[in-house]
Design a binder for these strands. Structure first.
Lengths: 248, 248
DNA sequence: GCAACAGTTCGGTGGGCACCGAAGTCTCCG
DNA sequence: CGGAGACTTCGGTGCCCACCGAACTGTTGC
């Protein structure tokens, strides 16, 4: 009588709580979010959210990716998304109902945003990739297992950053961790973090290459910024624009 | 903020109770069942089941067809079945897990069975259709709205039944309701009920045309029955056999 | 080291709901 | 009409669980 154990009921009960349902709906776009963001979306306290997230993970609906003091939750697999989608269809809800309302903000967030004090989003990933491709930074030989990898700056990189009036040596001798890869969960690729990443972002704001927006971590790449970054990172302005374009 | 109302959560919570999940799973084959049957399947008392069924109906997951003192519940539409199927897939449950185990009984039940005291299943529907097609019975002019339609027997029908030694006049004057259409929920078509339907079934058993089985409402159509019904209902034995064959 | 912050665990409270017994409604049948 | 049976409604009990405040762990940055 193994079919008598109410397995479906357990899964459905997990989705059947309003707070948890909101969490799952918010994750339907395939991106990952921190527990705090999800708490705000769910409309309950962080403690309660933590419990919900633990239940959803135990139930196999969510997966967890630890990163520093953040914990990124995302849907475990496509089956989960399919099940929720069919429930939303039954409930007469629009699939991804908030998308039109927030598309511009979400798109902008995905294109370029700050991650604490450094640059994330497609722009951040693009710049990081270029730094690696041109041999400006190299992974420190920590042998793969580490969670957030550390990097060193090569001679080529030193030239690039000094051209931007960023003093690599001072930063490298500072107490703060110097250069590390920060996994970007909207792009599933790393971008540059640490004091070097923060200095780069700060310089971009000083030069008017990036501008902050209100009430959002999204940033705008100005025309001057597009030209300046293209020049210093050995890219064409078109390449930067293409990297930031929404494929979706 | 209409998207903030947790509609999905309500639907999922409906499926999230073990008793209700068992009910829904049992109805996944598309057939309808009475509240009592579902109570047994769910493993709870009839009162509790009644509450569950009311909730599921209010939530749009089940539809109700009243018929006499029975109330047949079935899945409201294919969307509901799709949603439950995706949840079962998530839970790692076999779709329609009991099907192989019960296929033979279910097939026999569907081919020919008793419904209280008259003939139901594919055979019952076949005979009823033929009675209507040959003009043996006609709907009493009740103008469509009635739940279970009443019928009158024509002269042609009188001949047919008297050839079977069934006295139509005596039955028509009896206190019991004479001839009515009983909706057959495995076939979604009506079959003949009332005192006339009961008399026909009784005569079939007397003549050895039908034989009861143990522990089931299924009945077996004998070779003699196939020939006899074919003759009296103006059908060929092949037509009867084809009507009773499982398409599924 | 210390402050700040993300996130979790623990304890206690409260509300919602599944459950059953008993009683009521409706239909069928003789 | 009266009895039987299917099903529902009502009332009361008990349990589960969502919720938050407070305290704890672990990471980041100065």
């Amino acid at each position: 009588m193994s079919s008598n154990e109410p397995h479906v009921a357990k899964i459905a009960a997990l989705i059947g709580d309003p707070a948890r349902a909101n969490i799952l709906k918010a994750l339907m776009d395939g991106r990952a979010r921190t527990a705090k963001e999800l708490a705000q979306i769910a409309g309950v306290s962080p403690q309660t959210t933590s419990g919900h997230l633990a239940k959803l993970s135990d139930g196999g609906l969510l997966s967890l990716a630890k990163q520093g003091r953040h914990r990124y939750y995302h849907l475990a697999n496509a089956q989960v998304a399919a099940a929720i989608e069919s429930l939303m269809a039954l409930a007469g809800e629009r699939i991804l109902p908030k998308h039109h309302h927030h598309t511009r903000v979400a798109g902008a967030l995905r294109a370029a945003r700050t991650c604490y004090d450094h640059i994330a989003g497609k722009l951040g990933v693009c710049l990081f990739d270029q730094l690696v491709a041109r041999g400006c930074i190299l992974p420190a030989s920590e042998d793969g297992g580490g969670e957030a990898e550390d990097f060193v700056v090569t001679t080529a990189g030193r030239q690039l950053f000094s051209a931007l009036q960023i003093d690599v040596d001072t930063l490298a001798n500072g107490k703060r961790r110097f250069a590390r890869a920060c996994l970007d969960w909207s792009e599933r690729s790393p971008h540059l973090a640490g004091s070097l990443g923060a200095a780069l972002a700060e310089r971009c704001f000083e030069l008017g290459w990036l501008e902050r927006r209100r009430d959002s971590r999204a940033v705008t790449l100005t025309r001057a910024g597009q030209a300046g970054l293209a020049q210093h990172f050995d890219l064409t302005p078109d390449q930067i624009a293409a990297a930031m374009a929404e494929v979706h």
